Simulated assay, not measured.
Amino acid sequence: MTTTPRTRPAPTVWPALQAHDAPALIDFLVNTLGFVKTAAYTDGDLVAHAQLDWPEGGGIMLGSYKPDHDWSRQPGTAGMYVVTDDPDALYERVRAAGADIFREIADQEYGNREFCVRDPEGNLWSFGYYRGEPRP
């Protein structure tokens, strides 16, 4: 089944991050990587919940780190892979912004073209055009 942006199902898996400085992480993800801030519920400098959508589909949720809560994850320990149709253009945008690129853009032996960047919290982000294997 071929899908278009109009027929793609709404995302049903939402990776969730916590951050020591959630407002700064949101700024980085929006201004440097290109996510779209769809929602952010704050209390001063604390972010109770934010939703950032990826323009090409999917998104993440994040909030301020609360070590005493049962849904607590150590900031800076996540690794994300994000699909983009134009990894070269995104790489140039990220490089121009001065982001911490730890793997330069390159063709991979398995057919992807990708690069990797570290966000200010230490999370790792890989961007490429590989969309995964088709479902059987």
Score class of each variant (00 low, 15 high):
Leu25Asp: 06
Gly44Asn: 05
Gly76Trp: 04
Gly58Met: 07
Ala78Tyr: 00
Phe28Ile: 06
Thr38Ile: 05
Val82Gly: 08
Gly59Gln: 01
Met61Tyr: 01
Thr38Pro: 01
Thr42Asp: 10
His49Met: 04
Leu33Trp: 04
Tyr81Leu: 11
Val36Cys: 07
Val36Thr: 14
Gly59Leu: 03
Gln51Trp: 05
Pro15Asp: 00
Leu25Glu: 08
Gly63Tyr: 02
Gly59Thr: 01
Thr77Gln: 10
Asn31Phe: 05
Ser64Glu: 06
Ala78Val: 04
His69Pro: 02
Asp68Pro: 10
Asp85Ile: 01
Tyr81Asn: 10
Glu56Thr: 09
His49Leu: 08
Asp27Glu: 11
Gly63Glu: 00
Val83Trp: 06
Gln74Trp: 04
Asp43Ser: 14
Asp27Ser: 12
Lys66Gln: 14
Gly57Ser: 08
Asn31Val: 00
Ala19His: 09
Asp70Ile: 11
Thr84Arg: 03
Ile60Lys: 03
Asp27Phe: 02
Asp85Leu: 01
Pro67Asp: 07
Ala78Ile: 03
His49Trp: 02
Arg73Val: 15
Ile26Asn: 07
Gly44Gln: 05
Leu33Val: 15
Leu29Arg: 02
Phe35Val: 05
Pro23Val: 06
Asp43His: 09
Thr38Cys: 04
Gly57Ile: 04
Phe35Trp: 07
Asp21Asn: 15
Gly44Asp: 08
Val47Gln: 02
Ala24Asn: 11
Gly63Lys: 01
Tyr81Val: 09
Met80Asp: 00
Ser64Gly: 12
Val30Tyr: 07
Lys66Leu: 13
Gly63Ser: 09
Ala16Asp: 06
Val30Ser: 12
Pro75Thr: 08
Asp85Tyr: 00
Gln74Lys: 15
Gly57His: 01
Ala48Gln: 12
Val83Glu: 11
Gly79Asn: 05
His49Ile: 03
Gly58Cys: 07
Gly34Val: 12
Tyr81Asp: 10
Thr84Pro: 08
Asp27Pro: 09
His69Gln: 14
Thr32Cys: 13
Pro75Trp: 05
His20Ser: 11
Ala40Ile: 05
Gln51His: 06
Leu62Tyr: 03
Thr77Phe: 06
Asp68Tyr: 09
Ser64Asp: 06
Met80His: 10
Leu52Glu: 06
Lys66Met: 14
Ala40Pro: 00
Arg73Ser: 15
Gly57Phe: 02
Pro23Asp: 07
Val36Tyr: 07
Arg73Asp: 15
Pro67Met: 10
Leu52Gly: 11
Ser72Leu: 12
Asn31Lys: 14
Gln74Glu: 15
Leu17Val: 09
Asp68Ser: 12
Val47Lys: 01
Ala16Glu: 13
Gln18Ile: 08
Ala19Thr: 10
Ala19Lys: 03
Leu46His: 07
Ala40Cys: 14
Asp53Glu: 08
Asp70Arg: 03
Glu56Leu: 09
Tyr81Thr: 10
His69Asp: 13
Ala40Val: 12
Leu25Thr: 05
Asp45Tyr: 03
